[in-house]
């Protein structure tokens, strides 16, 4: 599975990169929302893990930009946020978000979520 992790927190991107690689997956990480969007538009990922509260270019900006390109429906995006549950709604970006997980997230649950998402094509 090829996974893109977009999170401004370096510890988190490092953790997830380490985890996914240890689980035998391919993982690309970035701490910038804009770079994440470029990576997303130029590469094909099986899943994207997206943080929302990022400086300059937020997760919402990422989703809006992706929405404008019309390619959002091709993506499997899992939002991982430390914002209170309910503040982020699945419907806010239409079909953009497949799942919302709250931080801190159980890695086992995250893996299970990604597996079930990518299994449905």
């Amino acid at each position: 599975m090829k996974i893109l992790v977009v999170d401004d927190n370096n510890s988190i991107t490092q953790l997830l990169s380490q985890f996914f690689k240890a689980k035998g997956h391919d993982c690309v990480t970035t701490n910038s929302g804009k770079k994440g969007l470029t990576l997303c538009l130029n590469n094909k990922f099986d899943a994207i893990i997206l943080d929302l509260a990022m400086p300059d270019f937020t997760g919402a900006d990422f989703l809006d930009s992706l929405n404008q390109t019309g390619k959002i429906e091709n993506q499997k995006i899992v939002v991982m946020t430390a914002l209170p549950l309910g503040d982020v709604k699945l419907g806010d970006h239409h079909h953009g978000i497949c799942e919302v997980l709250s931080k801190p997230c159980n890695l086992g649950v995250l893996m299970k979520t990604l597996t079930s998402l990518t299994a449905v094509t």
Binding site: L15, L16, M80, A82, S102, K103, P104, C105
Partner: peptide, 15 residues
């Protein structure tokens, strides 16, 4: 801000 650092702490514990 408090939950964010808990993510790598708990993640590494899990690993």
């Amino acid at each position: 801000e408090l939950k964010t650092p808990l993510t790598p702490i708990m993640g590494h514990c899990e690993m």
